[in-house]
Design a protein around this nucleic acid. Structure first.
Length: 481
RNA sequence: CGGGGUGUGGCUCAGUUUGGUAGAGCGCUUGGUUCGGGACCAAGAUGCCGAAGGUUCAAAUCCUUUCACUCCGACCA
């Protein structure tokens, strides 16, 4: 025994040493993704995709619960459609990919690979909407979009990413606003209840809002290294697109009306957030609800009589409880090897069962976030494990929340902030007058941006931290991914 | 787009300065002994040394060209 073959061991760069290397190591060594032949694109491997499926399942259930239906729109959008909403084209123009040929023929009109689907969906909605009786339109699609990025990182920023985009039409502004906020709250639940990532919810500044939106709402999470991550957005698009696309209907008063429009999305970026918030130097740590497999059973000395049988019995018992469980009875790896593998992969709970345990009617359970061995009785083991998973989920959320709070502070003065920023990353709360000049100055001088104007406001001062004029909002500021 | 770096079995690399016909560890295959924190023994399989051209009796190694990837700065969910 011993750690002889250490060359082969998949050591992960410690995050204190190089956060970015650490992140890549965790992703690559756990085989979540692989690099594709086309630069900036990513191949999502089965384990990475399984995490995405957890998110999909959770979010989709919420969408259905609130009356939404899924559909699918084409990948390619004619240039003329994209051009219909001016701010929108300008916002996305630098990063769209174009298709110019079909077979050998050059196309009369270029087609863009969707960077988002507002335009093509509006084009269809125009055909589908006739009367106020048809409203609301509550549709969503799960798909991928392409944005030609210069610098990419797996999950956080890739040229193609999987996401979900919901697009709704409503009779009134208020209804659209309600929908926008409702969907943001569902996203908050995905982040907090499923992924155990605490988020700050609020509105984006005009500078940071979606190209063509009336208002953009966001949830912002804080990563281990003190940088912020925009984890989901919901836009109230007003009538910008519906007017540009001439989506009209006959209203209650017999007059032609333009509906109010929303769109909202979350993407595989959430997986990047999940990794950066919870994981450690040994690899992934997955919250139980988001983990593809929640429990792995490792039989010890499995050739000895009764061990494998007992392990299988445990497996069946735990599985019957609705817990996602696996058993690893591969004889060619030692238990120590397996322990390390599953720790790296972030399996929430590992159960060891060997001859000694069977004699004592017990098993050893280890929680991935704590890594402490705990002896549990085989009686009611299914219930015990169920409870452990639940506690673990809550503990992970609390731990992340505590980290965020420890790294959130009130900006003293802007001058001081500039000095402190390199050594003190995290969320800074500050007052802002609302003008674009202050916002641009901040970005230019520090690289940090106004992440959002949180719904939960605090009156820190009545003067803008940047220009000293009358303050309108309290904002969260951070460097972002 | 500017600056640096790297291309050698599946992976991580050595070998390049000073040319001499391809190396290591791990992984993989087969068999056996093991199994409570990265086991061991034995026997195997795997390479147009990123690509093209040149110099030479001889090139992974020297020269030229080219391609790819990667890191750091400007832009972005």
């Amino acid at each position: 025994m011993g750690k002889k073959n250490k060359d082969f061991v998949k050591e992960i760069t410690p995050m204190e040493e190089d956060f970015s290397r650490w992140y890549t190591d965790v992703i690559m060594k756990n085989e979540l993704v692989d690099y594709s032949p086309v630069k900036g694109f990513m191949v999502i491997r089965p384990y990475g995709y399984a995490i995405w499926e957890r998110i999909q399942e959770f979010a989709d259930a919420e969408f259905k619960e609130t009356g939404h239906k899924n559909c699918y729109f084409p990948l390619l959008i004619p240039e003329s459609l994209l051009n219909k909403e001016k701010e929108h084209v300008e916002g996305f123009a630098p990063e769209v990919a174009w298709v110019t040929h079909g077979g050998k023929e050059e196309l009369g009109e270029r087609l863009c690979v969707r960077p988002t689907s507002e335009t093509i969906i509006c084009h269809m909605y125009k055909k589908w909407l006739n009367s106020y009786r048809d409203l609301p339109f509550l549709y969503n699609q799960w798909c991928s979009v392409v944005r030609w990025e210069k610098a990419t990182r797996p999950f956080l920023r890739t040229s193609e990413f999987l996401w979900q985009e919901g697009h709704t039409l409503h009779e009134t502004f208020e209804e659209a606003q309600e929908e926008t906020l409702q969907m943001l709250d569902i996203y908050r639940q995905v982040a907090e209840d499923l992924l155990a990532i605490p988020v700050v919810v609020g509105r984006k500044s005009d500078k940071e809002k979606f190209a063509g939106a009336y208002a953009t709402y966001t949830m912002e999470a804080l990563m281990h290294d003190g940088q912020a991550l925009q984890a989901g957005t919901s836009h109230n698009l007003g009538q910008h697109f519906t007017k540009a696309f001439e989506i009209k209907y006959l209203g209650r008063e017999g007059k032609e009306e333009f509906p109010y429009h929303t769109s909202w999305g979350i993407s595989t970026r959430l997986i990047g957030g999940l990794i950066m918030v919870h994981s450690d130097n040994r690899g992934l740590v997955l919250p139980p609800k988001a983990a593809p497999t929640q429990v792995v059973i490792i039989p010890i000395a499995q050739k000895k009589e009764g061990v494998l049988e007992k392990a299988k019995e445990l497996y069946e018992k735990i599985k019957a409880k609705g817990i996602r469980v696996e058993i690893d009875d591969n004889p060619s790896y030692s238990p120590g090897w397996k322990f390390n593998q599953y720790e790296m992969k972030g399996y929430p709970i590992r159960i060891e069962i060997g001859p000694r345990d069977i004699e004592n009617n017990q098993a050893v359970a280890v929680r991935r976030d704590k890594l402490e061995k705990e002896i549990i009785s085989l009686d009611n083991i299914d219930t015990t494990i169920g409870e452990m998973l639940e506690t673990m989920q809550n503990d992970m959320f609390e731990k992340a929340k505590q980290h965020r709070e420890e790294n959130t502070y009130i900006m003293d003065s802007y001058e001081q902030y500039k000095k402190d920023l390199p050594s003190k990353p995290g969320f800074a709360k500050a007052m802002w007058c609302g003008c674009k000049e202050c916002e641009e100055k901040l970005k230019e001088e520090t690289g940090a941006t106004i992440r959002c104007i949180p719904f939960e406001q605090e009156q820190l001062s009545d003067k803008c931290h940047f220009c000293g004029k009358e303050a309108k909002h309290m904002v969260y500021i951070a460097r972002a991914y």
